[in-house]
Amino acid sequence: MNRDLSLLIGILVALLAVLLLGVFHSTLALDPGQRLASLALERLPESGVSNPVTAVLLNYRAYDTLLELAVLLAALLGIWSLGPARPGFQPAGPALAAMVDWVVPLAILTGGYLLWVGGHAPGGAFQAGALLGAAGVILRLAGNAGAGLPSEAWQRWLIVLGAGVFSLIGLLLALTGYGFLSYPPGQAKWLILLIETAATIAIGVTLAAAYVGGRPQMAQPPRSPLAPMADPEAKR
C-alpha cells in the first residue's frame, strides 16, 4: 500500500471525523431532546408486550423487522446460488463430542427461554435465533457437515417461515380490516409470540445454513475430483 496515499486518506478522514464531532456536539448541546421515547413508553400497555424494545421491533415498527427477515433470506439465497457447500470438518474427538452433546441442547433451551423472556425483558427472536444458529455452528465444527439441518426441501420451508408467517398475518389483518400489521386490541401478545417463534426458527436455520456456506447436499455429496484436498479424511 502506498504510504503517502494512505496518509492523505487518513488526513481526509480525520478532518471529516472532526467535522462530524463538531456537528454532533453542537446538536447535542442545543437540543435536550424530546424523542419518541415518551410516546413509545406511553403506548406500551397497548402493544401486547412489556419490553419497550420488543414493542418497537414487533409492533410499532414491525414492518422494518419483516424486511430484515427478508434481508437475511436474501443473503442466504445469495450464498446458496454460489454453489454447493464444501465438506465439513473432521468428526470431533471424544472430549469435544461430549461437550457438544451438552452444549447444543443447552443452547436450544436457552434460545427458547430468550424467546419467551423477550416479551418483558431484554431478549426476543433475534437473540434466540442467534443461539439456535450457534448450535448449528457448533455441530458443524464438531464434524456434522449439515450442521444438524434437515433436508434441502425442509430447509427451504424453514427459512421462509419467519417472513412467511409475518407477512401472512399482516395481509390477513389487512383483509380483515385492521390494516397491514395492525394487531387487533388484545390479540397483539399472541400474534407477536407466534411471529417471534416462527422468526426464531427461521433465523436459527438461516444462520446455520449460511455458516454451512452453500446449497445443502441432497444425500451423500458426490465426491468431486477436487474434493480430497479439502477433505482431511482422505489424507489419512
Binding site: V23, S26, T27, A29, L30, D31, P32, G33, Q34, S38, L39
Partner: peptide
C-alpha cells in the same frame, strides 16, 4: 453553528 431548536415545540402527539 446553530442547530435546530425546532423539536422543542414538538407537540407530544
Amino acid at each position: 453553528s446553530a442547530a435546530s431548536t425546532e423539536s422543542d415545540d414538538q407537540p407530544s402527539r
